[in-house]
Design a protein around this nucleic acid. Structure first.
Lengths: 150, 150
DNA sequence: CTCCGTGCAAACTTTTTGCAACGGG
DNA sequence: CCCGTTGCAAAAAGTTTGCACGGAG
């Protein structure tokens, strides 16, 4: 479910406390940064906009926060790693992935569609002896800029 | 639609001819390799099993063949890049992605489900001014080995 | 005060590129 | 033969790590 900025921080504090991780200035600003972008962002983009954390600390924090389920990796179509806040913080959603420039944005589908997808996938996973944890449903295509720019 | 090994090569030849790319021994063996694996494989895996092409040529060929629509990149949950043959060669399908070890395997869903997904996604893309080219529906979970190995 | 977190620089890993030799048509 | 392709080695890009200092509780 989607949360307000305040409650996101509160939830993050709670999760970090469980693993005796500190909610430092750097980590708080990283969460704020992801809230501001409101779409999956690459490490390069974060570094460009941030001063608070150095590159190495940023990588370390992304790794740590991912392990705590605060942030998660988003699969694009290129080899650029992007991150977003966990779905429990910003709500379940899907991605529009530009195959030309790599830009990724969010979108949601109806509950009915979600249920149909879930049913189909759970069954498919069972056949393959996979333990399904969730799914990923993305649209691949061209973003507005790449569509326009021929 | 799924093709026989022979017709895959024939189709590849046709595609390469259009762009004056040669179907060299190395490229042919690369296609054979992907057919053999029958699942998305990483560059490292290809290098381990192949002698025909050096690392740099392998990268160059993957890039070139991707541009020709012969191979395509598969998004895992880690930062490892994996490749598979284009869907016109091996048929439309989806992926089971192990979030623990990165292993990726294929699966298919019913036509009815496919149609429902397509309809929902096309509509969503339109709202965001995205030009939808296709979709990606994957199951994230644990593969058999990782499920067993606790 | 005690640790965890951070900055800095170096080490690694992965991917890309320049150039001369090679091979396909 | 001609031009795209390959190998080798070096360079570039992206990510991780060791260590000493700084900051949170």
């Amino acid at each position: 479910m989607k949360q307000s900025r305040e409650s996101v921080h509160t939830l993050v504090v709670a999760r970090l406390r469980e693993s005796k991780l500190l909610y430092t200035q750097g980590r708080r600003q990283l969460v704020d940064l992801l809230l501001d972008f409101a779409r999956p962002v690459s490490v390069a983009e974060m570094l460009k906009r941030k001063s608070r954390l150095t590159q190495s600390s940023l990588y370390r924090n992304l790794t740590d926060l991912e392990a705590e389920g605060v942030v998660r990796r988003v699969a694009g179509n290129d080899s650029v790693v992007r991150y977003e806040l966990d779905e429990e913080l910003i709500g379940h959603h899907h991605h529009l992935v530009c195959v030309k420039c790599g830009y990724v944005d969010d979108f949601v589908v109806s509950d009915a569609t979600e249920r149909a997808i879930d049913a189909a996938l759970t069954q498919a996973a069972r056949k393959s002896k996979f333990t399904a944890k969730g799914h990923r449903l993305d649209v691949l295509g061209l973003c507005v800029r790449c569509t326009t720019a021929r």
